[in-house]
């Protein structure tokens, strides 16, 4: 993993995907022989409610240019109610990040079911494009 220079910069996008829906959705992208950008690194979590809001701050600090949290649609949570908590948490978190000057495009939360391969592909493709347009995230970075 060589350090990226300004010239060959490619965004790093971290995607927290719920095991039951969004991770399967991402899997289905491949099964359907569709492509999504290599910039996305997926972290599989048991439920979107497992994503501690600090993970987002820490990801930005350690070098992520964008973060996605993806979970089951409301009503579909494997654990019945996990994603309702996720929704509350990240509605607030998203606004906090904007308040400290992180561009709103850099952090997103989406409901993506196991069948929604196209939605996963489109979401991350759009996310990567937006972040490419914004450039590297340096505001919370260790090394500025």
């Amino acid at each position: 993993m060589a350090l990226m220079t300004e010239a060959n910069w490619e965004p790093k996008v971290l995607a927290f995907c719920c095991n039951w829906c969004s991770y399967s959705g991402a899997d289905l992208v491949g099964l359907n022989r569709m492509k999504y950008p290599e910039n996305v690194r997926i972290v599989r979590v048991p439920c979107s409610a497992r994503v501690n809001p600090q993970f987002i701050i820490r990801a930005f600090q350690r070098g992520a240019d964008g973060v996605l949290v993806a979970g089951c649609h409301p009503g579909d949570c494997h654990y019945s109610t996990g994603n309702y908590y996720t929704r509350r948490r990240f509605l607030v978190m998203k606004r906090l990040l904007e308040f400290i000057g992180i561009e709103s495009q850099r952090f997103q939360a989406r409901w993506i079911s196991g069948a929604e391969a196209v939605k996963f592909r489109d979401t991350v493709t759009k996310l990567c494009e937006d972040i490419k347009a914004l450039g590297p995230q340096r505001k919370l970075r260790d090394q500025k």
Binding site: Y84, R87, F90, L91, K94, A109, R110, W111
Partner: peptide, 8 residues
């Protein structure tokens, strides 16, 4: 259940 929906 009626919380605002921004993540659809």
């Amino acid at each position: 259940l009626d919380d605002m929906e921004e993540f659809m």
